[in-house]
């Protein structure tokens, strides 16, 4: 039950990231100038007939964020009351602290007229909240407790390392993407797959450098993700708990690169752009699941191993 609730929280967080992507993609970030109120109303009593124009995206994002915040409070309390593993309980507390901080960052970025460092931090912390909810959902699953997945990876140091590195690099790539979005560099290079008709741009500026860094990051992430998935399929193909996220990782990667290209070619269509943001989160989450399962043995105490063996 706890595992299912945690999975629901993770899914809600993904929806929240998509809603946040819509806010930025439609340029609606300042359409509600006050915070935590909405045009002077309590956020929850703001009349529906006033959800017009950019307000629709910004206000919906705030409401979904409130729901997700509440769900994470419930999750943290639930873990505190029933979870025997201290480190899992701690994950709940950290998720709670992160989502509260995230809400305040969202408010500050509105009150300060969307300064890029705060908006980028807001985007980056959103991904960490998502990762925390995914991690909680994973480690509270029956499969994790039984050791049903990842056991064959217990001695595979290569997989443990490459999966962890891939996850970290995907996160860095997402931060690069957030920097590009919040500094207005999304169309600094207007063509794809080339850059101004060349592999390396012939002209440079700050926005071009940021944009190009995100493209180079995409190549690095792709190579690492393919290496991770290839390793799993070659060495652990019978292990469903590793094979499934590995295949999903490659599938999501293909979707993500396609969405990235379409974002540029469509002139940053707001739906495509927002799908690119949330798919980035899904790529990160999938890689995290794979990395955690590959490193599962590190999280299991001797007592737990003996209990499972018995």
């Amino acid at each position: 039950m706890l595992h299912r609730f945690a999975a629901l929280v993770a899914a809600s967080t993904a929806l929240l990231i998509f809603a946040g992507g819509l806010v930025t993609s439609t340029g609606s970030g300042l359409s509600v100038p006050d915070w935590p109120t909405t045009y002077g109303w309590n956020m929850f009593t703001f009349p529906i007939d006033k959800w017009v124009g950019g307000i629709y995206y910004e206000h919906t994002h705030r409401l979904i964020a409130s729901v997700v915040g509440f769900l994470i409070v419930v999750l943290a309390v639930w873990l505190w009351r029933v979870e025997p593993r201290a480190w899992v309980r701690r994950l709940g507390y950290v998720a709670l602290a992160a989502v509260i901080t995230q809400g305040i960052l969202g408010g500050i970025t509105v009150l300060w007229f969307l300064p890029p460092p705060v908006s980028i931090a807001h985007a980056g912390l959103a991904q960490l909240v998502f990762c925390l909810t995914i991690a909680i959902a994973l480690v509270t699953s029956p499969g994790w407790s039984r050791g049903a997945a990842g056991d064959s990876a217990a001695d595979d140091r290569t997989l443990q390392l490459v999966a962890a590195v891939t996850t970290a690099v995907i996160y860095v790539q997402i931060i690069a993407g957030a920097t590009m979005r919040h500094t207005g560099a999304g169309l600094a290079i207007p063509d794809f797959p080339l850059a101004f008709g060349q592999i390396v741009p012939s002209v440079w500026s700050g926005p071009i450098a940021i944009h190009y860094a995100h493209r180079v990051g995409a190549v690095i992430v792709s190579l690492l993700a393919l290496a991770t998935a290839g390793h799993v399929l070659y060495h652990h193909v019978r292990e469903g708990g590793l094979r499934r996220p590995a295949v999903l990782l490659v599938a999501l990667l293909i979707v993500q690169v396609t969405l990235g290209a379409l974002t540029v070619l469509s002139g940053k269509h707001y739906v495509i752009n927002s799908l690119h943001v949330v798919t980035g989160a899904l790529v990160l989450g999938t890689s995290l699941v794979l990395a955690l399962r590959a490193n599962r043995a590190r999280f299991t105490t001797q007592a737990e191993r003996m209990r499972v063996a018995a």
Binding site: A97, I104, I108
Partner: peptide, 17 residues
């Protein structure tokens, strides 16, 4: 949590429009 909240709220209050 309390430290972060206090710091961020203080920062937010300084940015009125």
């Amino acid at each position: 949590i309390i430290t972060v909240l206090t710091a961020l709220l203080a920062a937010a209050c300084g940015g009125g429009n």
